[in-house]
Design a protein around this nucleic acid. Structure first.
Lengths: 207, 207
DNA sequence: CGGCATCCTCTTTGATACTG
DNA sequence: CAGTATCAAAGAGGATGCCG
């Protein structure tokens, strides 16, 4: 392991999670929950497969990730975060906050995108009132969906669609992002191509 | 610039600050304020000089750092953070928080240390009550000092000693860290070699 | 197909030396 | 002091192969 060799908490943290791709792997595990090698690869376009294997091994050794064989019907290895790994969530939250300013420019030609990546912005910008009825908000780009579940005070994220969403927003990534952040008024977003299916009030109440 | 090519705020942030050494350079500029190339090098033991030059150039291009020629008496280039660069402070705070668990083991044989690195833990663990008289706490390892200035509600950090400190703690890095975090009771720290000069109550009131 | 390991090339890093 | 130049070593990226 390459280390900065400094007795400093920042340096020691970066010794563990500062390598290329590492924090993005943690992002995937936070967003997707326990998942297969293939799910990780799908959430990390352009990662070299040997790097993913390397990083997973390092993360496991460092105690942030654990892998276990799933029971027979699935018969695959599942990777998941330990408590220590999940404790990185505040770090990722601040990275999202800082990076929010870089997002309005929209995806470039070569940028890849996965709907569930909207999970972090969603839990950053949306907030369920404690007394509020549970709502399911579905965000969709192309065929891919992510579901935002908001129930008394907490916001959870689930990859994939949901049976009975209260509101479905479909459209380009930057439209969805603008809509949930509130930076782009819903009417403007609709004019730009956002498709709103359900009660828009649901979104307003979460903001 | 190497990029992850993902339309995701985390990935875009890491595109900017995810390279090796980059966040540690930001740490130095946050702790030291505007400083010279040489000051940075001193705060970043083991960095290759070409890397420091490269990173500073990249940070400047990204708008996180600005360099300006200091007026004649100094006659040198001063590097400092822009507002955008300073906005990374919450990210570093969370990195410190997460890394705190890695610190009790103490510096290894090859670890380097600079007193001013204690500035982040100090502003994490210490807090000035709003109505409290201003206090100056000096932390010293070897010949190197850092001063923690606490005045109504805020905690500031200043490299170097201070003329009239209210309290001086001297000793090994992990003793200082244990003392300010409160994880190591002052009496135990003293037994382990911490030298306390001044009123220990000052520290207690900040915790 | 899922989960890697290997091989190869290219880029980045690190150590050291040198310069205006 | 504030870098640039050079070069070897390590890491990243891409293609492909292997095995249950």
């Amino acid at each position: 392991m390459r280390t900065y060799g400094q007795y400093c908490a920042i340096a020691r943290t970066l010794d563990v999670v500062g390598d290329r791709w590492t924090l993005l792997i943690v992002r995937e595990l936070l967003l997707q929950g326990p998942c297969r090698y293939t799910d990780l690869r799908n959430g990390l376009p352009r990662i070299a497969t040997n790097l993913l294997a390397d990083r997973l091994r390092e993360l496991e050794q460092a105690g942030l990730v654990e892998s276990r064989a799933a029971p027979p019907p699935v018969a695959t290895t599942l990777f998941s975060l330990t408590d220590r790994g999940r404790a990185l969530q505040p770090v990722l939250r601040e990275l999202v906050t800082w990076g929010a300013e870089l997002m309005p420019s929209g995806p470039s030609e070569e940028d890849s995108f996965r709907s569930h990546w909207l999970g972090f912005p969603a839990s950053l910008y949306l907030r369920a009132a404690p007394d509020q009825a549970p709502v399911a908000l579905e965000l969709r780009t192309g065929e891919e969906s992510v579901t935002i579940l908001a129930a008394d005070g907490s916001v959870r994220v689930q990859p994939g669609a949901t049976p009975e969403p209260d509101l479905v927003l479909s459209g380009a990534p930057q439209l969805l992002l603008g809509a949930i952040s509130g930076l782009l008024p819903l009417e403007d977003a609709r004019a730009l191509g956002l498709v709103i299916d359900g009660d828009p009030g649901v979104l307003v109440r979460l903001q």
